[in-house]
């Protein structure tokens, strides 16, 4: 009985999870193409910026979690160690989404570039007694210049 329940959870996690992931990636790629004209750079603190420009802080954040299947797969992975491929895409999506949110805000303000961008990743309290990857927050922030 428990086994059936587990298989159902795994199945739902796998199929719905990978469908949502595929859709999210399509969305990310589309928005990345749309915002390609505004460069996002991690330097800028020590560069001189042309006189008369305006600057403002922009921030994008997202909390992501892995699906049930990925948690299960990674707990198996834990036995032998090595690359946890299933989690890589979760964090990749989160990071790209956070950068996009920051960028889109900056663009609507009229920014021509976003400089001195910093990325931050943190765990925000785990559920189910700290087992598995619960919720990861990715933050991207930088200074928009127009």
């Amino acid at each position: 009985m428990d086994l059936i329940f587990l298989v159902i959870l795994l199945g739902v996690g796998y199929f719905v999870g990978s469908y949502l992931e595929k859709k999210h990636y399509q969305d990310i790629k589309k928005r990345e193409r749309q915002t390609l004209h505004v460069p996002v750079v991690t330097f800028g603190a020590k560069q001189a910026i042309p006189h008369g420009n305006e600057a403002a802080l922009f921030l994008g954040s997202v909390v992501v979690s892995a699906d049930y299947f990925k948690m299960f797969a990674s707990s198996l992975r834990n036995l032998v160690g090595g690359r946890v491929v299933v989690y890589e895409s979760v964090l990749d999506r989160g990071r790209r989404e956070a950068i996009l949110r920051m960028k889109e805000q900056a663009i609507s303000w009229g920014a021509t570039q976003v400089v001195n961008v910093r990325l931050e990743t943190s765990t925000v309290g785990s559920q189910s007694g700290g087992k598995g990857l619960a919720a990861i927050e990715v933050t991207a922030y930088g200074t928009g210049i127009r």
Binding site: G13, L20, V62, V64, S65, A66, D67, V90, A135, E137
Partner: peptide, 11 residues
Amino acid sequence: NLVGGELKGYT
């Protein structure tokens, strides 16, 4: 958490 992806409430 079952299906993964963004947790909008937390965001």
